[in-house]
Each structure stands twice: as C-alpha cells, then as structure tokens.
Amino acid sequence: MNLRILVFFAIGLLIFFLDIGFNSEQSSKDIYISDQELTSLLSAWKSQVGRPPSDEEIVSIINNFVQEEILYREALLLELDQEDRIIKRRLAQKITFLKQETIPDDPSQEELENFFDLNKDNYFVPATYSFSHHYFSKESNAKERAAKAFNGYKTNGTEIIGDPFFLGKNFYQNSANEIKKNFGELFFSTIENLSLNEWSGPHESVFGQHIILLKEVQNGFSPPLEKVLIKVQQDYLSQAQDKAIDEYINEIRSQYRVIINPDYKF
C-alpha cells in the first residue's frame, strides 16, 4: 500500500516537473506589454512627432515593438549576443546610466558651496582684450611696409592702409587663448604690454606684421557662486555620477579575474 502511494507520488512529481518544463517553454513565447511600457512607447512617439498617435499609428507602434521583441528573443536563442562588441558596450552604458540615476539631482547649498570652494579655479573668468589692427603680409616686405605706414601716420596723420586679414580688423573681448590661437604666442606677448588707445607697431605675428590699437583690457576675476550656480551644480552632479560608477566598479572588481596571455606582445 505504501509502495503504491510512493509510485503515484513519483509519477505525480514527474508530471509536475514536465508541466513546468513545457509551460516555461511556452511562456518564453509570450510577449507581455505592461501599461507602463505601452505608456512609455506612446510618450516617446509623441515627444518625437509632437502630437499623440492616431489609432492606426498606435497599432503600428505596438506591431513594431512586438516584431522587435520577437527578433530579440530569436537572436538570444541563437546566442547572437555572445562576443558582440557593440552589444557589450551598449549594456555597459545602460548599467552606467542606471547607477548615475541613483545620484540625487538636488544637492544642498552646503554641498555646492564646498564643491565650489574646492574647484574655484575652474570658474575663473580670464582677462579679455579688445583691439584693432592693420595687417601687412609677410609675403611682401611686411616689416618695411608696416614701418613706412606707421611713420606716415605718426608724422603726417596719413591713413594706415594694410592688407586684408582673413579674421578681420576688429576683435572684441578676446581671451589670451583666443589671441594665441589666432595670431600666435609672440603677438599676445605684445598685446598684453601695450598702452591703451595708442597705435603701436610694427609688431610681428605668425602671419606677418601688425600695427595695433589696444582699446580695452578687462582683468580676469573669480565670480561668486551665485553667478555660476547652474554650471557648478552641473559639474557637481557630473563628478558625483562619475564617482558613483568608480565606487561601483571598485566594489565588484574583486569578484572578477582578468587573464591575459603572458606571451602576448603589446
């Protein structure tokens, strides 16, 4: 009697596990679209197009989603996700975004003040220079022509006429880096030592000779936090997100082992 019960129990257990197996296989073919996912699909469509989708467009959106899901599952069955560099990079980006989203986007005033104090140099506003110039191309006796034009101006008030310059004649509130980029280091070292509102020259640049009128110099300064608050908040959040990723990777790195061919020639 006990043996019969044991046999029936074993058969029942076998049927139970077979049922689980078949049902799990069947359930893998089910595509369930939650209300949240459907809302997300329709919202994404509306944000791209600028209006809610029509009934026909909703059908098309759902069909496209189902088709994508079917192709995705079939690709997984064929193990097409294995050893794919693009997929790995995309998944790495996705988990990075998830970790970054755990950082609250409303740091306190004290946190921002501390961050600002530690990174004040990043918000320093550099000095700027406003000037005009007459250009003499080095391809055609630049120094001699520039000197003659400047002497004529100083002696007789003759109008200075130079060559066309590809960046123009007048420059307003250019930083040191902008001037160095456009004219070279030598030109900037000249600019920062000129007197205001006096034509001077000739002065050399990488392009030739110049007669220069320095009009205005605005000294560099460190702005108060209130003037750069939005930028400071963005930088704070960016640094906090990067830190969160670094801490996450460092936390789980010990669980992984990296094996590299010792004979590989880098």
Rank of each mutant, 00 (worst) to 15 (best):
Y72I: 06
N63F: 09
Q109A: 14
G157Y: 02
V66W: 08
I15V: 15
K88N: 14
I245M: 09
D235N: 14
R253L: 10
Q239S: 15
F221T: 12
D105A: 13
P202Q: 07
R4Y: 08
Y236D: 00
L3C: 06
T158M: 08
T39F: 13
S130Q: 05
D235I: 04
P107V: 03
I179K: 00
G168E: 04
A176W: 03
S189Y: 11
V7K: 15
F131V: 05
V206W: 05
I95N: 08
F116S: 01
E25G: 15
I5H: 07
L18G: 09
D235L: 08
T158K: 08
E226F: 11
N177W: 07
E178L: 04
N114V: 13
F115E: 01
F97V: 11
P126E: 14
G152K: 00
E251Q: 14
Q82S: 10
V66F: 09
D19T: 15
A75Y: 01
E79I: 03
K148L: 06
F131P: 02
L3T: 10
Q67E: 15
F207K: 02
D235Q: 05
A244E: 05
N63S: 15
E25Y: 15
F150C: 00
L194Q: 07
P202Y: 03
T96S: 12
D121M: 09
W45T: 02
N64E: 15
Q255P: 01
I179G: 00
I249M: 11
A240M: 08
K143L: 13
F8T: 09
L237R: 02
Y172C: 06
K215E: 13
L196F: 15
L76D: 05
D117K: 12
V59P: 00
K154P: 02
F150T: 00
G21N: 10
L71F: 10
H134E: 07
Q100N: 12
G157W: 05
Y135K: 03
N250Q: 13
S254K: 11
I31T: 13
L80Y: 11
V228E: 00
E216N: 11
V66I: 15
F22I: 10
E204C: 07
H133D: 04
G220Y: 07
F188K: 01
H133T: 03
F16T: 07
L38H: 06
L213M: 14
F9L: 15
M1I: 10
I161P: 01
K143M: 14
H134M: 09
V228P: 02
S137N: 12
E139P: 01
D35Q: 14
K154F: 00
F221W: 07
W199Q: 02
P202A: 07
G168Y: 07
E192Q: 15
Q234F: 04
L186G: 05
L225C: 07
